[in-house]
Design a protein around this nucleic acid. Structure first.
Lengths: 356, 356
DNA sequence: AGTTATTATCGAAACGTTTCGATGTCATAG
DNA sequence: CTATGACATCGAAACGTTTCGATAATAACT
């Protein structure tokens, strides 16, 4: 059974190949009679045009490359997997495919360049999360549009999809202050990832504005380790502060994973959350509702980030002369048990998978 | 800058298009002089043939579809993300791309069929983890090869990549028995996923063989909830057993996620692991080394599973007349703190990301 | 010297689409 | 009655490769 082609359909419908193509694309003029006739044959043989043939005459490939650090995709966080899903959902609408490439921590342009770039197999590129700057520089040289999600290069202007980290952290700290907490610590990883830095700045701003400038400048309350943000950092951060008899009544974390590390350390040192210490995360990963107590955190709509990134790519494809764009994704504080003593009740993650 | 084509290369090297193609593919006869000349031009202009054009004459697309339940990909487990990475690594070697599709818990053939199947855009399909049987039935109807990873249909014979669940669980239980544990419980989820059933059977076999048949048949020691295996099941399973005053000194879990749920419950009820109760997981997910205590578990090489699946697809593509194949992936017991009281030391996950 | 292999190169067809321009048909307006 | 324009259909070129068969030159046999 050799695959059915447009020629077969044309023959069986008694029309020319071009007419079938016209029906397929909905362009040009086709009479209703002919259209129905052709559609019936297409339906009957379950014909679908072959992409590779379809893409040849047009200069496009119908693919978008999605690049992510292996560390981000295969670490504990499901964060970027959901961004990927969002991108895929959006791509689907335009019949585009997403090609995935992971990239290590170091980057050598010749060797590590994702092959879909070398083979001209994508019409656009999405880069999610922190990656080596060299990669961005390399992609910037290309003639195809690209979008950075939750990251950016300090010098190169790019199309961006960013989280409102500053506001999110600000609101989290504000919430703590409103509930009477004062000695609020911050635990996080490397500022290489600008999101972390912005969260820290939002934390400082809220303190300053509440007249707690002393706290915002008290370095003994700031655990800022220069490595990838992780639960390890949270765990050891808390241990350090306790061992050094630092006085704190709340902890704001760079992300949920860190917060979970903090939680473990606090519980191991028999400190009660939120009784002795309140705890706030960031991201609202699924795990945040599975801890005991559940975690107050700043919700980040991951799916939406992926969708926005893909839409931005399409916009750039449709309007090549557009300038650089930045799209902000807004966040929302989700108050759970780790900052408030309430009646416990089963709660589910805010973001349910969208099936399509 | 219109893209460079094979024609441009031919012109600049002063040879025919076919000769350039010959150089590219390494087939046929080309003199060393010509070859070097052509290669130099290719190098100079950084020419790479366009896939869509390349794939047209051949009947193949150069893509492999990877289907996974959204629940598996976006749940807490990183398990199948690593299988995907393994598949991608292997695909890369043959210049194939992996197209990802997620699928919900229910499946309606017309609506939910991944679009790369409808559009004939893949040469083969890998299905990872539990999916609705209808999907397998649908894929089975197709004329392209497909491989099931860590799952199978009870009636349809397929090409399979399976884990040695039985042996793995057997060894885990054996290990517990050897260390004097006797009242060994089993906690797990639905048998819809055959891996879970096999693990349970391995558990029973080890007990029976050690003359502990009474335990292997004691249903009060078997928490078998008919839903997706999760940490919730572990948590509530332990609570149930304790509340009913069931006597147990060890727990074998259907997977690590469940074990982590168990651990939380045990610790909350102030039972010491492994002092009061020993705990064994399955899968060796990254999280297993981040718990306190670290988790004894059965290591499953996830990357290798993906690689094997992709290699199997290629084998089937190369030798179309081959019969159904099943490839077993072997497991290994990793003893950590949750079953033995040892000096604690930092340990890293066994499976480091392979960067390529 | 003549036949046959082997090596080297090339022209042209083929792959399955889209799209451009040509050719008609048929109303409607002048 | 003829010009115009909208509608309908089609043939053929084009997209960038691979591959088949042709041609030719050289080498290796009788």
């Amino acid at each position: 059974m050799g695959k059915i082609t447009i020629k077969d359909i044309a023959r069986m419908a008694g029309v020319s190949v071009s007419t079938v193509s016209l029906v397929l694309s909905g362009k040009g003029y086709v009479s209703d009679i002919t259209r129905t006739k052709v559609e019936k044959v297409i339906e009957k043989y379950n014909y679908h045009p072959r992409q590779s043939a379809r893409r040849l005459p047009s200069k496009l490939t119908g693919n978008i490359g999605f690049i992510i650090s292996d560390l981000h995709l295969y670490g504990n966080e499901v964060f970027y997997s959901r961004v990927l899903l969002g991108a895929e959902l959006e791509a689907r609408k335009r019949d585009y495919y997403v090609l995935l490439a992971t990239i290590g921590q170091s980057f050598a342009p010749a060797k590590d360049t994702p092959r879909f770039i070398r083979s001209h197999d994508v019409d656009g590129i999405i880069i999610a999360g922190g990656v080596p700057y060299e990669l961005i520089e390399c992609v910037h040289e290309l003639t195809i549009p690209y979008v950075l999600v939750d990251f950016h290069h300090p010098l190169i202007p790019s199309n961006l999809v960013l989280i409102e980290n500053y506001t999110g952290a600000y609101q989290a700290v504000r919430h703590l202050i409103d509930h009477g907490y004062e000695r609020i610590a911050f635990v996080g990883g490397s500022f290489y990832h600008s999101s972390i830095k912005e969260r820290f700045q939002g934390y400082q701003a809220a303190l300053n504005e509440a007249g707690l400038g002393a706290i915002s400048e008290d370095q003994s309350l700031h655990i800022l380790v220069d490595e990838e943000t992780s639960d390890q950092i949270g765990y050891s951060g808390i241990c350090t502060m306790i061992d050094q008899s630092i006085d704190f009544d709340a902890v704001v974390c760079a992300n949920d994973t860190t917060a979970i590390g903090c939680l473990q350390a606090l519980q191991q040192r028999t400190l009660h959350v939120p009784g002795d210490v309140a705890l706030v995360g960031f991201d609202d990963i699924r795990h945040a509702v599975e801890t005991e107590p559940t975690l107050t955190t700043v919700h980040v709509p991951k799916l939406e980030m992926g969708q926005q990134a893909m839409r931005l790519i399409f916009d750039l494809l449709d309007h090549p002369r557009t300038g650089q764009q930045t799209r902000m994704i807004h966040t929302e504080l989700i108050v759970r048990e780790s900052t408030a003593t309430q009646v416990k009740q089963t709660e589910y993650a805010r973001e349910r998978p969208t099936i399509a």
